[in-house]
Every structure is written in C-alpha cells, then in structure tokens.
C-alpha cells in the first residue's frame, strides 16, 4: 500500500454520554476517493469536523502527509492543504460568487495584511477565481450575489471554493445533499473528473454516487468502523448489509437512499 496522505488512528470523541467517534482508524491514499458511509447519527459529520480541525478529538491521532495535525486549528490545516465542503451550505452569502472564490484563492496567496491595493482589481485573484468558477460551470454567475443563487449552485460554489485553495485532500461532507437527480449527476461527473488528481474523503448518503466514485469505502455505525474495503467487498459484507444497506443492496444497482 502506498504511503497514506491522511492517517487517522484510534480517534475518539464523545458528547456527554454519547460516543460519536469510537476509536476510528482510517487512511486516505494519495489520489483515491475514500467514501465514508453510515446511517444517520453514525458520526460522519463529527468525524469530518475532527479531520478539518473544527472539533478536537479526546484521544487518537490525525496525521497528514507525515505531520501530526491532531491539535492544529482549522485554518492551519487548510493552509497545509486540507479543504472541505460543508454538509449545510456555508458561504459568504452577501458576496458575489467571484468574491467567494477569490477569497479562497487569496487565502493561499501569501498573507492578507495588505491594506492599500484594490483586491477586486487584482488580476491574479480575479482571473484565478473565474477559472475556478468555470471548472464547476458557474462562470456566467460570477457576479451574482451568492444569496440569490440556487441550492445546486451553492453546492458547486462550495466545491469551487474548496478547489481554489489548491488542496491535496478534499473533505466532502455530503456534496450532493439536497440536490435534484440531474444536479447530482452533474456533481458526480465533476468529482469523477477529479479522480486520481485529488485525494478525497467523501461522506455521502447517495449510494449511487458512492459506488460510482469510491475506490474504498469505510462504513461507520454508532461511531465505530464496522467495515472498510473495496466497494465490492463492502457490498458483500454481511455486517454492513445488516447494519445499514439493507436487503435492497443485494443487487448491485440498488440504492439505499
């Protein structure tokens, strides 16, 4: 197995009496899409929050590219090359799509203690932002205020912002959440296009998406990893079927959601 980009060892987190992350081990190999699935309340979003730095684990270790990042805050992890999208859209709604992406570009173009030059006239930022919007097909919406854009466009803008930080690892928390079938297909196509280029940890409910995209799948139930492996192995795994996928997953084409 290649050297892992992200290694999670024995991660533990509880809220009051509820164990949200129960000694989780996980690895993301460079270039792979590693999906994390599990029923509602399995602790997927809590896991992502600990990987992105929003939440501190109580025990365990997170290593990124050979460096222990367990206690680094979110912004420091982002600077190392970990980008994320949020399950619930999280944007600067009063800014234009272009400004949202430009801010992400700017975050990785040196420090921002620059007080004088007009940032919006900075070609480096504006052009790179536009390229980012083009990639997700939002170039014609560049000057729209994010607030008035559709839900599907918000999801794409989230991805564009994450990519604009030139990450080495993408943490995608249900990127297809709330999308229509067509929009979801568009997103799957887009993520498939990134495959091999970017390493991804994908949390997703949409089983079609997971089985279409993932190289490996980890199944989380009640904060515990009950199985981890190639999609075909996961599909055949007895424990997974019992706990989560249900009988409908017996045939390969089925969708649990």
């Amino acid at each position: 197995m290649a050297q892992a980009l992200l290694t999670v060892e024995d991660l533990y987190k509880s809220f009051g009496g509820v164990t949200a992350t129960d000694h989780v081990d996980l690895q993301v190999i460079p270039g792979e899409i590693h999906a994390v699935i599990g029923p509602n309340g399995a602790g997927k979003t809590t896991l992502v929050a600990q990987l992105s730095g929003e939440l501190r684990p109580e025990a365990g270790r997170v290593t990124f590219d050979g460096r222990v990042i367990t206690n680094l805050p979110a912004h420091a992890r982002a600077r190392l090359g970990i980008a994320r999208s949020f399950q619930i859209t999280s944007l600067m709604l009063d800014m234009t799509a272009r400004d949202n992406v430009a801010l992400a570009v700017q975050a990785h173009a040196g420090h921002s203690f620059r007080f004088w030059a007009d940032a919006r006239r900075d070609r480096d930022l504006a052009d790179t932002a536009l390229v980012g919007l083009e990639e997700v097909g939002l170039a014609d919406r560049a000057d729209q205020t994010a607030r008035i854009m559709s839900h599907g466009e918000h999801r794409l803008l989230e991805i564009a912002m994450a990519l604009a930080t030139k990450p080495r690892l993408l943490l995608l928390d249900e990127p297809m959440a709330g999308m229509g079938v067509e929009e979801a297909q568009r997103m799957i196509g887009f993520l498939a296009g990134l495959k091999g280029d970017k390493s991804m940890l994908l949390v997703e409910h949409d089983m079609d998406a997971v089985f279409a995209l993932a190289d490996r799948i980890t199944v989380l139930v009640n904060g515990q990893v009950i199985a981890s492996g190639a999609p075909d192995d996961i599909r055949r795994d007895e424990a997974v079927r019992r706990a989560y996928l249900g009988d409908e997953m017996v045939d390969a084409s089925g969708s649990a959601d």
Binding site: P73, A78, M92, L93, L103, A119
Partner: peptide, 27 residues
C-alpha cells in the same frame, strides 16, 4: 482603501461567515 483591499475582503468575509473563512485558511 482599507475596505477594498485584500485585508478588507478578509474582514468582510469574516463578518459573513467566520467558519467558512477558517475552512479556507484564514486565522
């Protein structure tokens, strides 16, 4: 000048959504 600069954009962004600003790498 300040409000239109890179610094000003960060200040504006942090007002709009601090969590997102952290996630893209701003302290």
């Amino acid at each position: 000048r300040i409000t239109r600069s890179r610094f000003g954009m960060v200040i504006e962004g942090a007002r709009g959504n601090e969590r997102r600003m952290h996630a893209i790498g701003y302290d």
